[in-house]
Design a protein around this nucleic acid. Structure first.
Lengths: 169, 169
DNA sequence: CTCCGCATGTAAACGGTTACATGATTTG
DNA sequence: CAAATCATGTAACCGTTTACATGCGGAG
């Protein structure tokens, strides 16, 4: 069900084509969910038939821009407020982190070092995004989410550095 | 592929039956991966046929205890050290958190409050686990992972409290 | 000796990924 | 006008979930 509501949520932020949604999944939602175009286009069709989304414009190359209907907006609101969250996760990096203590010290440092590089990149991207959003005049509702991302990645970065330093003894 | 390596990893920690693995997924790995018995039993069969795991004991009620073979241990090590991590995630709570700014202040507080209760429970369970592990004499290789869990949940807890407090203005 | 929890298994349905396929518009 | 990118769609495969199904062993 998450795919449906992720799409409703992105359309609530701004009307989009399927192609744009595919990119937004990669850019904004990539740390929480992923979807490829082969899933998105059929789902947009279902959303339209269910009366939750509608075509609000046609562009070049047969592109259709979808927006939410009032029913779609209400459906999204109900899911966010009333729905019981499914807290189960699928996170391969988490599995790796959990199992890394099984390795010897040298191998463990290789694994942690690989993660550290990745987390540092993520962190830098988020810090830049925050600066960019902070520079614009309009208030940005998603600023706290960016802040949370920065804090979370900082904790992981510091923890990884500690693990690598401790192993060096 | 993660399921296969998650099982190899759990078997590396201690030989187990399928039933025990099912419970361990819920207890230890639940924040990173989930698997039900209907997936675990067939996968144990595949692992055995692939020479990565073997039956090391029989117990009551036809139960079979599986352990890793040398090949299984090596396969796990290679995955952890050499394998390029798949960083994509599926995390419904993350999707919700990302979309919550779309709600009005009142609805937003309901959603954040629900998350806060959950995070506080998680945090308490981890703090208890840390105390329990710290009290035992034997050195515990997974202590840093527990510490990371505590730090991560603390950050989320504090962030949620801030969001709820700010909305009260 | 009955009930409950332990323990294992299979099948159908569902959701997600990868691969296949096509055509329109812009850039050089 | 050729190549690259935009843009949409479908099909086969694979992994996950849900539902069905069975039998053993201990507790009362």
């Amino acid at each position: 069900m998450s795919l449906r509501f992720a799409i409703l949520g992105l359309l609530a932020r701004r009307p989009s084509t399927g192609y744009e949604l595919t990119q937004t999944f990669d850019r904004s939602l990539r740390t929480s969910w992923h979807a490829s175009h082969s899933q998105i286009y059929p789902e947009l069709g279902k959303l339209e038939r269910a009366g939750l989304a509608e075509v609000v414009g046609h562009g070049a190359r047969r592109s259709k821009t979808y927006g939410l209907t009032a029913a779609g907006r209400e459906e999204l609101r109900r899911w966010l407020v009333d729905g019981e969250p499914d807290r189960s996760q699928r996170n391969e990096s988490g599995v790796r982190l959990f199992l890394t203590p099984l390795l010897g010290a040298a191998d463990r440092c290789i694994a942690y070092g690989r993660d550290l590089t990745h987390v540092e990149d993520e962190l830098q991207a988020l810090v830049e995004l925050r600066a960019q959003v902070g520079a614009s005049e309009q208030p940005e509702a998603f600023a706290p989410q960016i802040e949370l991302g920065i804090r979370l990645n900082t904790v992981v970065r510091d923890w990884l550095r500690e693990q690598i330093d401790d192993a060096a003894d």
